[in-house]
Nucleic acid binder design. Sequence first.
DNA 1: TTGAAAGCGTTACCAA
DNA 2: TTGGTAACGCTTTCAA
Lengths: 349, 349
Amino acid sequence: MTVTLADVAARAQVSPATVSRVLNGNYPVAAATRERVLKAVDELDYVLNGPASSLAAATSDLVGVLVNDIADPFFGIMASAVQAEIVGPGGRAGGERLAVVCNTGGLPERELTYLTLLQRQRAAAVVLTGGAVENEEHIAAVAAKLRRLTEAGTRVVLCGRPPVPDTDTVALTFDNRGGARQLTEHLLSLGHRRIGYVAGPEERTTTRHRLEGHREALAGAGGPTPDDLVVHGPYDRASGYTATRELLGRAPDLTALVAANDTVALGACAALREAGLRIPEDVSVAGFDDLPFSVDAVPALTTVRLPLSEAAARAGRIAMDREAAPEGGVDEVRGELMVRGSTGVPREA
Amino acid sequence: MTVTLADVAARAQVSPATVSRVLNGNYPVAAATRERVLKAVDELDYVLNGPASSLAAATSDLVGVLVNDIADPFFGIMASAVQAEIVGPGGRAGGERLAVVCNTGGLPERELTYLTLLQRQRAAAVVLTGGAVENEEHIAAVAAKLRRLTEAGTRVVLCGRPPVPDTDTVALTFDNRGGARQLTEHLLSLGHRRIGYVAGPEERTTTRHRLEGHREALAGAGGPTPDDLVVHGPYDRASGYTATRELLGRAPDLTALVAANDTVALGACAALREAGLRIPEDVSVAGFDDLPFSVDAVPALTTVRLPLSEAAARAGRIAMDREAAPEGGVDEVRGELMVRGSTGVPREA
DNA sequence: TTGAAAGCGTTACCAA
DNA sequence: TTGGTAACGCTTTCAA
């Protein structure tokens, strides 16, 4: 029924081994033979059997990309950049490698399930993006999984989450703490004193680091952090909306708002507008990330050195090429966090 | 080195065949035996070899999802919804199936390359999302590919693009023409007469259908379509920005603007703001799609019957289950197009 | 309900 | 440079 390597070999009058060699281009093959083979491939409209190939070669051309939420442009950009990098040399459309994008929803179980699924597929590489869940048990489970993956030859790259000790993985991290500090310091320098903070979900590295940076800035300005001005919630628009309403209820006098990411910032803006407040005249809003739509909602505040897409592209490159990785397997590449915001001086300040 | 089915069989004191049956749950296996096998699987930390399994079974648990631009939230939402539906029964995290998201960038070659790659992987199903390129040669090539895929047992679902004749595929289409007509009619009813139109890229079904709807509405209002008020460009933010500046240059008197999609609308808004115009006081903006961020940029205008995510989820369901498909292989499911907009009465109208 | 064994289509090693 | 041929690890008849 379906055309196999043997059929091609027969038609080209060569052995299956030769056809395989031509297709993989790993071994030297006489030009004439190669032509004959390619012609046969074309005539028979032959398509390699991936599973068979992967079985024999003990590796596949699949690259897993774990994201917290593919519907969030932040991860869409990451996935896109990684995918662009994993294509084979020559940048031929689609390349050889296929990106398997896995939506974890930020759920620990799903993260593990997907890693197992990718292990099952004998994925060539796996890129884990976004903040990690900070739960001791889960961290250990993930570490164990990653260890098993790397032992099986799968390359693992972490992008936006802390390195995992004792694993042959490479981590590319963002300066969440520093970015948050700068952001809040900037607001403080403008005279803001009552600053609300819409934080991400609990038990997440990004949430914690950004919040720590925020607190550092406040502490530096002399004041302690008013805990009633911090509200946690998921990294989505609805959460930004809800949290902002909550904050406005608690502190009608706040003049600035920091959102844990751009998507959350959008929800915050919506809540502020609904409350009749003008941005940034009444309340300044600042968010992280570097999503295109935030340019409209929240004009740029701080420039960044390593755009999100470039960071992700780099992760993709590392996944494909050990050489691209920093020296030492488990190293850390410092990126810069994106910081955007719409800022103004506080009312009566 | 790595644990195989045989190892599990040995430890559980059964034949490999039995282990396979337990793992796949397709054949009846004595409860006691099953327990013993699962125990062995657990103890050995066994992970099935996907490629080997796919080779033997002649099908994989991979589902391809072709999107034009994964960084665009529109497709992110689609990919997300499809992925949520293709997980195995019980909705277990990650399920059995893996979504392979392929970024075509709207390029015909890449679309074909990805289809070949998925064919090579013996994908269980393929979902093509978004508008199709209207190029005779390409259409024929895609049709041929899809035919080959379905013949090989791969289920193919089209979501947001026209059916492909003579193929065993299912299409789920949106009413692009009708949506566009309604949108423009709405603007006309508000008194707008000079309406700019930022169209999508040429040779794309969505571009053509939406533009046709727009022209129908204008024609219905008596006037011919002023061609100088239509500018084409890619479906991205930059294009919306550029096109809007172009339109403002050509017709400083326009009071409304229709953007081919939400992402384009954002760019349009940015250009308008930059020009010192207020939305919707000076210029009304309307866009398609149903992206969360557009709620901020462009308040809702028209409600919709079938939200984008639900449409995509349905496509995912059809991909997995022939029963979910409309009667007749090549049928058409009518969805409703998302229409959003920020509208106001025209200046001095 | 379970086992034996024949593939599934490549790859890669060993010869030639 | 090319061919022969064992694996690769699983699924799936066919028997028992």
